[in-house]
Amino acid sequence: MKRTIEFELNGQLVSAEVGGGQTLLELLRQRFELTGVKEGCGAGECGACTVIVDGRALTACIYPAMEAEGRSVTTIEGLATAEGALHPLQSAFVEHGAVQCGFCTPGNVLSAKALLDQNPDPSEDEIRTALEGNLCRCTGYQQIIEAVKAAAGRKP
């Protein structure tokens, strides 16, 4: 049964007709065409679909779209400025070779962003914990961790 909900998406108030069984991943990809939100496992176990909702990273593939109502959702498309300037995390990922095939990258960047927004100067352990739910099949973990360390402290 569909119902119209309103929420904030990448800084803009939006409304959408949502089905009761729909996931946030489906809503973001199909209705809003934000295909930076990737579907990997579909069971919350790979982190490719990670988005930030009200400041917390979560896996959109198992999050009911209806629960986005009234909340603030950030996807990878919301990070760069309107003029196209990259977010410091995105720049750091490029500089440190933290992007290989790229499929896990949006999820990793958003997990890292949720961490740095709460804790601007994390330890390596805290970075590893924040990223533990993001699998990289190219096994570029070390570069990803280096990129997050480099981005910590840089002003967005």
Binding site: G44, E45, G47, R56, L58, S111, T129, A130
Partner: peptide, 9 residues
Amino acid sequence: MGSTQMRNV
């Protein structure tokens, strides 16, 4: 348990 993303919800 799970991961950071799971523990958040």
